[in-house]
């Protein structure tokens, strides 16, 4: 029995030599049914489309085949290319946005600090003083053609520095001396005319009309 079943396959796939065995085999109804059933399945398998490897696989193999003395050297590094799993993508996904946010924060803090320092009173005073006193360097240096040529320093009334006034400091000192109070004066005393003070020859004080 088992040899007969084996023969079904051998006949089905054309690997049995004798044709007469098949005829005798098909006389049995059960064997004939099995043979028919297997023939149908085999027919479906024969119709199955063949698969081929990807083109780049063949290319990689042929590249290895072209290498001198064959694949021994090619085995090491001729694998088909695949997308590398690197840290670059992670860097792009995580690090770059973080760096961007950090840079934006630094920029915002810098802008805030700059604007606050510009709007503070001391800064405004300093800046206004700066505007008053600083003279653009172009006004100090003017190109004057001369026999020697080159740059010549020119100073006129307009270009003179405003703080370079020689009378300001002595005038200020005189005003301070004029306003200097007497030794016995106290902030708590009641107000009285100057003429009532004892010792009219106090330094710094003169009675009204004395110069007349």
């Amino acid at each position: 029995m088992k040899h007969t079943k084996r023969d079904i396959l051998l006949h089905l796939y054309g690997e049995s030599e004798s044709e007469s065995d098949l005829r005798s085999l098909l006389r049995d109804k059960d064997l004939k049914a099995e043979y028919t059933a297997m023939s149908e399945t085999k027919f479906k398998l024969d119709l199955k489309k063949s698969d081929r490897p990807d083109r780049q696989v063949i290319d990689a193999i042929m590249e290895a085949a072209r290498a001198p003395h064959g694949g021994a050297s090619a085995l090491g590094g001729k694998r088909r290319d695949r997308g590398p799993v690197s840290r670059t993508s992670r860097l792009k996904r995580v690090m770059l946005p973080a760096l961007g946010i950090a840079a934006a924060l630094v920029f915002a803090i810098g802008v805030y600090w700059n604007s606050s320092s510009l709007t503070s009173p001391s800064a405004s005073v300093a800046s206004s003083a700066f505007e008053d006193t600083v003279v653009p360097p172009e006004s100090l240096y003017r190109f004057v053609p001369s026999r020697q040529g080159g740059l010549t320093t020119v100073q006129d009334s307009k270009s003179a520095l405003s703080w370079d006034d020689g009378n300001t400091l002595p005038n200020l000192r005189d005003r301070i001396n004029t306003l200097k109070p007497a030794d016995r004066l106290d902030w708590g005393e009641a107000a009285m005319p100057l003429e009532m003070l004892s010792g009219t020859n106090r330094p710094g004080f003169q009675t009204a009309g004395s110069n007349r």
Binding site: D51, P53, D54, V57, A60, I61, A64, A65, H69, G70, G71, A72, A74, L75, K78, R79, R80
Partner: peptide, 21 residues
């Protein structure tokens, strides 16, 4: 399919290596 491609390549690289040696 991907694994089959890899194994196919591996097979023929071994064939080349064996023929070369």
């Amino acid at each position: 399919r991907e694994t089959a491609n890899d194994l196919f390549q591996e097979t023929f690289l071994k064939v080349i290596s064996a023929l070369s040696n």
